[in-house]
């Protein structure tokens, strides 16, 4: 297991997962969100080729109201 930060909160996931697998392991569903890894945007097309490592920080953002 490795420790990562997801939306500001520490959690653990199995080692060796890519972004797509990480999202599934974290129980995120659907497609209406976007992902950043360590402050860098990760495009949907690169989820499977981007690996998540120990101490990585992930942001998962979805649409909300805005001004």
């Amino acid at each position: 297991m490795i420790e990562i930060i997801v939306n500001g909160k520490r959690t653990t996931i199995p080692n060796g997962l890519n972004i797509k697998e990480t999202i599934k392991a974290l129980d995120y569903k659907g497609k209406g969100f976007a992902v950043a890894l360590n402050g860098t945007f990760i495009a949907l097309a690169t989820y499977e080729t981007t690996m998540v490592r120990d101490n990585d920080s992930i942001e998962i953002l979805a649409p909300v109201q805005g001004g």
């Binding site: 997801v6 939306n7 500001g8 974290l26 129980d27 995120y28 569903k29 659907g30 497609k31 209406g32 969100f33 976007a34 942001e59 998962i60 953002l61 979805a62 649409p63 909300v64 109201q65 805005g66 001004g67």
Partner: peptide
């Protein structure tokens, strides 16, 4: 205008707000 904020785990990707917009 719209925005992005952190999404909690377990929620579907779509949401009522976005459907209305």
């Amino acid at each position: 205008t719209v925005s992005l904020r952190r999404q909690a785990a377990g929620e579907g990707g779509g949401n009522a707000f976005w459907e209305i917009i």
